[in-house]
Design a protein around this nucleic acid. Structure first.
Lengths: 202, 202
DNA sequence: ATAATTTTACTTACCGTTCAGTAAGGAGAA
DNA sequence: TTCTCCTTACTGAACGGTAAGTAAAATTAT
């Protein structure tokens, strides 16, 4: 059978909507329609909109934190930082709705983000701080604020996804020659990782 | 007298609201109240909400594009890129509502952004592409997509402002020691500029 | 100079729609 | 018969936008 339960179906469709339209503009009646049910059916499974949102985002942040912690245990600081960046980048590839959701929360004052998710984020920041500290001890890195490094990693990668429509509109104003081509996301991860690591090195 | 006209007053208050709450959550009745007038008075001065938004954002993007073009004319590619980053950073300081507005547009598919603004953005991208190209010719920089470099500059700087509430929530989970301090924004511009330029150099 | 008219810059009162959330009931399984 | 999982039908509030009217200032006519 491998049948997806209605509850899972609601989560999947609402994740898509939260990602594309954001929390406020996500209309539960539309989500219900896409699931082939009616709105009160959603309220049978979830207390309210905020609870549904929580059910959507918490697993994502949990998975992210876990993958990052797993992949950045071994190696020297350089290898671990590289792993950190690649793991984050690959997570964005494997969870296509996550970029937009995270981006909105960042530009939002994290207004809708449950505490459980900020706790997961704090774990990844701690891990990054740990890596950077190790790098300083190993005389590989100059000292730098983990928050800034986190921003340098996270926001360009996320924006490469979310800003695609904006880039396309911008490209329309360029005449033929001056248009830079859309880079592949895998290449972006590689480029970004190289540049950040180079920028941090002593 | 130096009296601000009602129209200017509406623009100022709505800019604040668009920045803090975003386009959708900005309620024109609230804006009117803050201006000491009623909602239809806004409609006397502006056709609709979208037109008011346009009146708010266009001058900002215009000023940004102009400042960047002015400040990046002279010097070698290295100095010009440095000027690009500093000018952008300082613009964010001088226009405190701009970060949040821009961040929302990026994570939004630029859904509300008028064409006039994307045209201004395309000018800054062209300027950046020009600088990077000059750097390649001067054998200072490795070749890199202007879009990626733009993202590496713009999004961390913007997020340093918009993600402040999120950072504070994250910091609450850290126990004493592992909390990195909030860096000063001026220092962030300097750090980021150094790292990006270092990362790009041959 | 002044009376008549028009324009500016609003107000009060309202409409229509959207949307989160609820009350109550019903079909099928256990 | 009772519990699960829904449906139909609804409420209430928020909000974008409009219709109609008005007081004061500016403009024009006499």
């Amino acid at each position: 059978m491998a049948k997806v339960s209605k509850k899972e179906l609601i989560i999947e469709h609402s994740r898509k909507s939260f990602s594309q339209k954001g929390y406020e503009l996500t209309c539960l009646e539309s989500v219900a329609k896409e699931c082939g049910i009616t709105k009160p059916a959603i309220y049978y499974h979830f207390k309210d909109k905020a609870t549904l949102y929580k059910a959507v985002v918490c697993p994502e942040f949990t998975a992210l934190a876990q993958k990052i912690e797993e992949s950045t245990q071994t190696g020297n600081a350089l290898q671990r930082l590289n792993a950190y960046i690649y793991t984050f980048g690959n997570f964005l590839i494997s969870s296509p709705d996550f970029s937009a959701i995270f981006a909105r929360e960042i530009s939002n004052g994290s207004a809708n983000l449950p505490d459980e998710c900020t706790e997961k984020l704090s774990r990844t920041i701690k891990q990054l701080a740990n890596i950077l500290q190790a790098g300083v001890v190993e005389s590989l890195f100059e000292e730098e604020s983990p928050f800034l490094v986190q921003m340098m990693i996270v926001t360009p990668l996320i924006s490469c996804h979310t800003a695609k429509p904006l880039r396309e509109r911008i490209a329309n104003f360029a005449q033929d020659d001056s248009i830079p081509l859309e880079p592949e996301f895998e290449n972006i991860i590689e480029s970004l990782s190289k540049k950040i690591i180079k920028g941090l090195q002593c």
